[in-house]
Every structure is written in structure tokens, then in C-alpha cells.
């Protein structure tokens, strides 16, 4: 498949580990150790994906991201440390596609890379989105689970549609609110979002306390996943 991936991280150990891992999965990689270097390589090589460390020595991750976004729509996956949900949300709202938290496993990183590549290649024109046994039919505005129809209110459907369009990818609270309600703000309406996600889970999850489809990313947002692909 020969997709190219640009790794921007100041730690040689991490770059080397990522290079080995991604090579084994058949990707071509470039490495950059500073934000500046990363930016020029992004302009020169037009990678298919950028893995961007948030803690670079010369610029903040968000600055690098903004510079990249001025030139290109290449998917950017942020590499972050555990704390700093605000930073993650800011980066996502500035156009990052997703993030992985250090330390991350191969499965997690590869899942993110695959999702990012798919979203880069496919335009969301398909009539239905499949997340394992869950099917969201965008044409008929209907939802099925294990072949049975699930009845959703318009807002619940709208939320699920936004999540499904970003299947496998995190959607921040703000993004969800803006797309589902248009004129809402997270500060004022965040709790409605939680209530509707709760309703949605009751309808589509087998056990709402152990969700399989709609995963909470604490402090960041939600992610619709395909349980069979995990």
C-alpha cells in the first residue's frame, strides 16, 4: 500500500520504534526531530499521514499543526502524554484528526493510522456506515442493530450520524455540539450532550455501563468504534 508517514518527535528512541513498527506494516516513513524540520519535510514530501509529538523543543504541537493546516489537509495524529486534556481538545479543534496517549500499544496506533488513511481516501458518499452489527443508513435515516431497527429521536440520530461519519475517529464535545445543534456551545450545553449520549447508549449498547460502540474519551469527546475490528 506504500502510504508515507512523517514522524515528528524529538526523541530518537521513539522515532526508531515507530519506524520499525510502521515498516513492518508496510508504510514508508520520514523522521523529523524539530517542528521546523517537520514543517519543511511535510511541505517537501507530501506525506499521507503526520504523527506529531505535542512536546517538541522548538514549537508547541498546536503551532506546528496550524502551520500544516495552512498548506494541507493531511491527517495529523497527535502523540500526547497522559495529562493535558485541554491541549488535546485544542489540537483536535484546530484540525488534528486524532491522538494517541503515550505509552501506546501497536494496536491502538495502527487502528488510528488505518482510520485516518480511510478517511483521507474515501469521501463519505457511501449510503450506509457499518460498525460491526450496527448499521447507520444515511439515505434512509435509519439505524439497525443485529438486523433490528433501532428507533432514535432526531437529535439522537444526528449525534450518531456525526459519530458514524467519523467512525473510529474521536469527535470532541464541541464538534459534536456544533454539528448536531449548530448554535450550541459546550460551556452551556455540555450536559445535554451527555444526556443524549446516555439515551443513545441505552438504545444501542447491550450494557450502557460497558459501552461497546460509543466510547468516552475522558475530557475530550466520544468515539464510535467497530467492536469487531478491535
Amino acid at each position: 500500500m506504500d502510504a508515507t508517514i512523517l514522524i515528528i518527535d524529538d526523541e530518537p528512541q521513539i522515532r526508531e520504534m515507530l519506524r520499525l513498527m510502521l515498516h513492518d506494516f508496510g508504510y514508508l516513513t520520514y523522521g523529523a526531530s524539530t517542528g521546523q524540520e517537520g514543517l519543511s519535510m511535510a511541505m517537501a514530501f507530501h506525506p499521507d499521514i503526520v504523527l506529531l509529538d505535542m512536546g517538541l523543543p522548538d514549537m508547541t504541537g498546536t503551532e506546528v499543526l496550524k502551520h500544516i493546516r495552512r498548506e494541507s489537509a493531511v491527517p495529523v495524529i497527535m502523540l500526547t502524554v497522559h495529562d493535558g486534556e485541554q491541549e488535546k481538545v485544542a489540537a483536535l479543534d484546530h484540525g488534528a484528526d486524532d491522538y494517541v496517549t503515550k505509552p501506546f500499544g501497536t494496536d491502538e496506533l495502527m487502528a488510528r493510522v488505518r482510520v485516518a488513511l480511510r478517511h483521507r481516501r474515501e469521501l463519505p458518499e457511501e449510503a450506509a456506515i457499518h460498525a460491526g452489527p450496527l448499521v447507520v443508513d444515511l439515505d434512509r435515516h435509519s439505524v439497525e442493530r443485529h438486523g433490528e431497527a433501532v428507533h432514535l429521536t432526531p437529535i439522537e440520530y444526528e449525534l450518531l450520524r456525526v459519530l458514524a461519519l467519523n467512525l473510529g475517529r474521536v469527535v470532541t464535545h464541541t464538534q459534536l455540539l456544533h454539528q448536531a445543534w449548530r448554535d450550541a456551545s459546550y460551556e452551556n450545553d455540555g450536559h445535554y450532550l451527555r444526556i443524549y449520549i446516555g439515551h443513545l447508549r441505552k438504545k444501542i449498547e447491550a450494557d450502557p455501563a460497558r459501552p461497546q460502540f460509543i466510547i468516552t474519551e475522558p475530557g475530550v469527546g466520544y468515539r464510535l468504534v467497530d467492536p469487531d475490528a478491535q
Binding site: 497522559h82 495529562d83 486534556e85 455540555g190 450536559h191 451527555r194 444526556i195 449520549i197 446516555g198 447508549r201 450502557p208 455501563a209 460497558r210 459501552p211 468516552t216 475522558p218 475530557g219
Partner: peptide, 28 residues
């Protein structure tokens, strides 16, 4: 790191209306 943050007094709460089952779900 959590202890350091608690002790340094840098802990700032970002309180929001949360769903209890969602909290447990994330923990589990």
C-alpha cells in the same frame, strides 16, 4: 505525577455535568 500535582496546589478542577454510568464505563 498526580501526587506532585496535588501537592503543588496546581490542581484545578474542571467541573462538568457528568453521567455516572459514563464515569464507571470509562473506569472499567
Amino acid at each position: 505525577l498526580g501526587m506532585v500535582r496535588l501537592e503543588s496546589g496546581m490542581l484545578r478542577l474542571n467541573r462538568q455535568a457528568c453521567d455516572a454510568s459514563d464515569l464507571v464505563g470509562v473506569v472499567l
